[in-house]
């Protein structure tokens, strides 16, 4: 859960309360990096599963 707490922390607005959202640079960077890294890991897992079980799996859900 520490990871999710960290995500919650970096997702907080940098603006004072009542003001519109002001993004922190780490939040913007993680919005790009996290899905790309998880996507790469999942693609690797799918490749391993295909080799292990001799099946053909699909790609991403797009």
């Amino acid at each position: 859960m520490d990871f999710f707490s960290w995500l919650a922390k970096i997702s907080q607005s940098a603006a004072p309360p009542g003001q519109p959202f002001a993004a922190r640079w780490l939040y913007v960077a993680m919005a790009l990096v996290i899905p790309a890294v998880i996507g790469a890991v999942l693609a690797g897992i799918l490749r391993v599963l295909e080799k292990a079980f001799g099946i053909r799996l699909g790609g991403g859900s797009v």
Binding site: P35, A36, G39, L42, R47, G59, G60, S61, V62
Partner: peptide, 13 residues
């Protein structure tokens, strides 16, 4: 943002 991950998977696959 979820599409970034899905597109990465599809691109690699």
């Amino acid at each position: 943002a979820h599409m970034v991950g899905s597109a990465t998977i599809s691109q690699m696959r």
